[in-house]
Simulated scan of single mutants.
Amino acid sequence: MTMSNLPNKEKLIRNFSRCHDWEEKYLYIIELGAQLPALTAQQRHPNNLINGCQSQVWIEMTLAEDGTVLFAGDSDAAIVKGLVVMVFSLYQHLLPQQIIKLDIKSFFADLELSQHLTPGRSQGLEAMVRTIRARAECLCMQTNV
């Protein structure tokens, strides 16, 4: 899976709803993470490390020529890696200002994800979202949008 082949929000919801129980849903999340392209050593720079996650999580955000944000990421934990893919799926093809405005908490609430993640993973997920929004704000300032 390249980052351009990420499932969209509707496909994620559809696939998630086809899982019969939480064991299958966790397996689906792990499967998503396994398809994440590997990061280069340069992308694993400390500046891309997310604070507030128990696992190590790297997220790199760059602007495409059309002004949308491109994502690259990785984690040392299989489920967290899948959560990274889910977050990227929600934010793909958006402009920085759209990322700032998008409320993805309702998406995760619809999937009942927060009830089934450990408190540490839930906090890590929130840390990822906070960091992505903050970095999107920086990208807006850099481009004077």
Rank of each mutant, 00 (worst) to 15 (best):
L6W: 09
K101M: 08
K25Q: 08
V80G: 01
F16A: 02
A77E: 03
T40W: 10
Q123P: 02
F107M: 02
T62H: 09
L49G: 02
P37M: 10
M3S: 09
R135E: 09
C138V: 13
S75Y: 09
V85K: 04
V84Q: 04
L63P: 00
V57K: 07
T40C: 00
R121H: 03
H93C: 03
L36N: 14
V57P: 05
L49H: 13
H20G: 09
S4C: 11
Q98W: 01
Q115K: 05
E137T: 12
N47M: 09
D103V: 04
N5H: 09
M61Y: 05
G52C: 05
M61S: 08
I132R: 13
T131R: 13
D66Q: 00
F16Y: 15
I100S: 03
L111V: 05
R135T: 11
T2N: 15
D110H: 07
Q56C: 05
R133D: 03
V129Y: 05
M128C: 04
S114P: 01
L95T: 01
E31K: 15
R14V: 07
R14G: 08
R44N: 06
L94C: 11
G124K: 06
M3R: 10
Q92D: 00
I100R: 10
D76G: 03
F16I: 02
L6E: 02
Q42V: 15
S114N: 12
P96E: 01
L117V: 03
N47S: 11
L94P: 06
H93Q: 12
R121W: 07
M1N: 11
A72H: 15
W58H: 12
G82E: 03
Q97S: 06
R121G: 00
Y28R: 04
L27H: 10
I132K: 12
I79R: 08
I99D: 05
E23T: 13
I59P: 12
W58C: 02
C53G: 05
V57M: 04
I59W: 14
E65Q: 14
Q123D: 05
I50E: 02
M141N: 08
H116S: 06
N144C: 04
G73H: 06
I59C: 10
K81L: 01
Y26E: 11
K81D: 03
L39S: 14
M61G: 04
C140A: 12
F88L: 05
I50S: 04
I100H: 05
N5M: 07
A77K: 01
D74L: 07
I29N: 09
T143V: 03
S106N: 10
F107L: 02
A41D: 13
S122P: 00
Y28P: 00
V145M: 11
S17K: 14
R18S: 10
Y26H: 08
E23Q: 14
F108N: 04
L39F: 13
Y91W: 11
L111S: 07
A34T: 11
